[in-house]
């Protein structure tokens, strides 16, 4: 039973990691006042770009970079449409997701059914020998550790530096930021691109580490769950981490259900993360005051300097 718990916890971390990358990426984008519903598409394109890179004989690191670049490229399309051409952010984000699904499926035909070898687990000395938790938390691959380092970095920048202050300011009132002389559109471009890159990396983790193979539409709604996570976290990084592992746990549960002696139809178990997303959204959104206090006030609203 203890072995199962350790395994489940370890799987939870791994399953949560793509969500950590993607949701932190979307957090950066949304902090600047831009909502990009294309997370699912960016993750998928990141996943196939990373997989194709690695399966062609390049290193895993090259794969991760390729995934990030692919996600960023898609985010660039979104940014041009919404920030320069003033298109509706919601519609454009949806288009990005639909396009990403189509593009990854199209490109991915050539790579169907292949597998690659993912990152090796790295044990952290001493810590990894802690009973139950050690095996779960400190015996992971580099990208899991990387996601936690990223979380620390983003928290630091967001709340302790002028860059972070500026990002929050632009998200709250682009008009004020413009009036005192900041290049709002450029800042939003950068935040959108950074967000896209992280979504791509999240997708890369799925295809070259977690699975590791290419399956059509393999992101399976995680992009949308990442979007829900930003709301669940009320735009705060620590809660994103928490939420991501919560959903990672739900996902892992289906695979470990039998081991834990749970006998429910796998179809119904598969619904669990999606059901949980709805529950979580309801619980958080119920209180409009919390949302109002923490949501970037200009979220989704177009801004055009004149």
């Amino acid at each position: 039973m203890l072995d199962h718990t350790t395994a489940l916890l370890a799987a939870t971390m791994a399953a949560g990691t793509p969500l950590v990358y993607a949701a932190l990426g979307e957090l950066i984008t949304e902090k600047s006042g831009v909502v990009n519903l294309g997370v699912e598409g960016m993750m998928l394109v990141g996943a196939i770009a990373a997989f194709a890179t690695v399966a062609s004989g390049n290193s895993l690191l090259a794969g991760v970079i390729a995934g990030g670049l692919a996600g960023m490229l898609l985010a660039l399309v979104f940014a041009v449409l919404t920030l320069t051409l003033m298109a509706n952010q919601y519609a454009t984000g949806l288009a990005l997701s639909i396009f990403g699904i189509g593009l990854s499926a199209f490109v991915g035909k050539a790579w169907l059914g292949m597998t690659v070898t993912g990152f090796q687990k790295v044990s952290i000395p001493l810590l990894s020998s802690i009973p139950v938790l050690g095996g779960a938390l400190f015996q992971q691959d580099m990208m899991v550790y990387g996601s936690i380092a990223l979380f620390a970095l983003i928290s630091l920048v967001l709340y302790k530096t002028k860059t972070g202050l500026l990002l929050r300011a632009v998200g709250e009132s682009p008009d004020s930021a413009h009036a005192i002389g900041y290049p709002v559109v450029r800042i939003r471009y950068l935040a959108t691109l950074a967000g896209g890159a992280l979504c791509g990396v999240g997708g890369a983790y799925l295809s070259i580490v977690y699975t590791p193979m290419w399956v059509e539409n393999m992101v399976a709604g995680r992009g949308w769950i990442a979007l829900a996570l930003t709301v669940f976290a009320t735009w705060r990084p620590a809660r994103i981490l928490l939420g991501a592992y919560l959903f990672g746990g739900m996902t892992s549960l289906q695979f470990h259900a039998q081991g834990l002696g749970i006998a429910i139809s796998p179809y119904l178990l598969s619904m669990l993360p999606y059901l949980a997303t709805i529950v979580v959204l309801v619980v958080i959104s119920r209180n409009p005051q919390t949302i109002r206090l923490h949501a970037p006030a200009s979220l989704g609203k177009p801004f055009r300097p004149n």
């Binding site: 519609a91 949806l94 639909i98 396009f99 189509g102 593009l103 499926a105 199209f106 991915g108």
Partner: peptide, 20 residues
């Protein structure tokens, strides 16, 4: 691959949003 349909659908919407 017939996934090209999805690709074109996404492109169509992109171009619409752009020309809008």
């Amino acid at each position: 691959p017939n996934a090209i349909t999805g690709l074109f659908q996404g492109l169509l919407l992109f171009f619409l949003l752009g020309t809008d």
